[in-house]
Design a protein around this nucleic acid. Structure first.
Lengths: 335, 335
DNA sequence: TGGGGATGCGAAAACGATTTAGCAATTTGG
DNA sequence: CCAAATTGCTAAATCGTTTTCGCATCCCCA
């Protein structure tokens, strides 16, 4: 590998001069600067990131904290897109990304320790148990952090507009004539809480009554439980005309059991999902769902994080809200 | 951050001694070694990876080269699982992973340059155009490389057993009584070629004739094209009784158009997918498909790469084949 | 002509670790 | 009991950069 020393020798100047020329300092004459840069290019010079990191304490590397193995965050399309967004934005701004875990080799280390060890300039946290003490420790560690879909009071967060999302979805069903709308919501998290509250509030504003039996809970992506909940809804004295699922995937579970009972979607009952996954578009009938702008979520998180890193003085703690939109399929019937 | 220097000061020994104690060298007395390690732990010492990398030329970081943005490799469930496998195995062995791209910040750099810049110890290449000159350059760069699902003669590769996969799937259909089996295969790649050859060979062995019109091509994950191809198959003079799709996702496109025509799956026609994605299990009827052991693919790639890194002398160029298995759904009828 | 700014460049320290070579003290062996 | 071998430790160089400070040189103007 060619180093500044090699360039210095070839150009017959000092390494200091080379370094300054390469970094565009002003106390090097224009000619020398251009000459050195040309030679560097010709010699195929690339800086050694470890040396730079050691000297400057900046790695141009940002950590990404995603849910681990068992709960396979990566295979969830929404989060995969979020990650993709983070990656693209980071790369566009000159940063690489590295996964942060809580074990490396034999030893376990906390997320914070891992971040210090790798010297990441900042971390994006998503798709994880935000209440875990290790996560809290990281958030309070002084390392720049941006959280996705969870709000800590001390750090910038980028959140999908769950309130508006559910509102729009419910409003859509309402506008299609539905009054008996059920909501199977996801398990406990701030996202779920927002969605649930928005569900109640929207229907309240619309002066629509919500029987208690219309609101059920089901873990995300659990088609089996979703099927059970659907059965429960279908056997209500007054079954809903429209069911809203926690995500597109659970909707499949519901749809299956509905069709199994000889009911047609949307003729006999309407369903809606959440996320806007690719199979929601591909299935028949296409699922009406809320398309989250997952990519924007990731991009925005990366952009804000990098801003915090590069201009800490001007960075405020922000709540960035990213909107989604109703993706109209054919799973909701006009009443 | 606490450094070896701090520990040395506290223990009243030299930094060399601390370093050796920490790394378990034998020329430090047992007592001193233990004492130093205890102090290090108490002081919350973690090594500075940049310093180590600079000095030793080892980063304990492996690069991962995945398809870029537009073709969103990450949102493909199979590849997401592969990535997850790489990540887990790497972390278990003490390595972090970093994405490699061909642009960082404003400047573009080749994959090889990016790898040198970050100093990764090795690279896993997957889900990419293996014929691109930049990829070839990387493979020949001297950096340890393992490819997934593509064979270069000079490097170790881990491949999913596409030959056996298609064989098993076709054999399954055959055993279910099917003789008119169509195959819509993916677009050009070594994976597609293997699968196609295996399709022909298997039916040849089974003494089943394959009309030319039964073999069509469709890009992976393109439901629209899959639907068109399906229509084409249905309008054959002697339509197939079973259609094998390039992947689970395209199968959805086919299934839709089949049902749209009033045909029932599997009563009127049977279909099979490939991959074993989560929605293949969730849909109704569950799709019969070949479940690739995507996780094992990733783990194995990481394991072999790390072996090459740590014991280059003993590492041979290998072809590692990872098997899959037929995931029996209810989309194939017994004839 | 000479003092005071610019301007352009280089010497050297520093970042945090590893590693080589060597020195003292201790043990061993003849 | 002395030379040789072993043991336990340290000084110092080194990896590839950045950055501070100082030193010339040159220009300008009085």
């Amino acid at each position: 590998m060619v180093s500044v020393k090699d360039i210095a020798a070839r150009c017959k100047v000092s390494v200091a001069t080379v370094s300054k020329a390469l970094n565009g300092y002003s106390d090097i004459s224009k000619e020398k600067r251009e000459y050195i840069n040309a030679v560097a290019k010709e010699m195929g010079y690339y800086p050694n990131s470890a040396a730079i990191a050691l000297k400057t304490n900046r790695t141009y590397n940002i950590g990404i904290l995603f849910l681990d193995a068992a709960h396979n965050g990566l295979t969830n399309e929404h989060f995969a897109r979020v990650l993709q967004g983070v990656k693209e934005e980071a790369e566009a701004r000159g940063y690489d990304i590295t996964f942060i875990s809580n074990h490396i080799g034999g030893r376990t280390m906390t997320y914070t320790e891992h971040c210090h060890y790798r010297g990441v300039d900042g971390v994006v946290i998503a798709c994880i148990d935000f209440d875990a003490p290790e996560v809290v420790e990281l958030v309070n560690s002084g390392i720049p952090v941006v959280t996705i879909d969870h709000v800590f009071h001390s750090t910038t967060s980028v959140i999908s507009d769950n309130v508006k999302g559910i509102h729009d979805l419910v409003k859509y069903a309402y506008d299609m004539g539905h009054r008996r709308i059920a909501f199977i919501h996801g398990d406990d998290s701030s996202v779920s809480r927002d969605r649930l509250a928005s569900f109640y509030r929207t229907l309240d504003e619309l002066k629509v009554d919500v029987p208690e039996e219309y609101v059920l809970v089901c873990p995300y992506r659990d088609t089996k439980r979703a099927a059970e909940m659907t059965v429960q809804l279908l056997s209500c004295k007054e079954p809903p005309t429209c069911i809203l699922y926690p995500d597109d995937f659970t909707a499949i579970g519901g749809i299956n059991v509905i069709e199994q009972r000889g009911l047609k979607i949307p003729a006999d009952i309407s369903v809606m999902g959440y996320d806007g996954n690719s199979y929601a578009r591909a299935m028949e009938p296409p699922l009406t769902t809320l398309e989250q702008d997952s990519d924007a979520l990731g991009r925005s998180a990366a952009a804000h994080l990098i801003h915090m890193i590069e201009k800490p003085k001007t960075a405020l703690v922000e709540r960035v809200v990213v909107g989604g939109k109703v993706l109209v399929g054919r799973s909701v019937k006009k009443l």
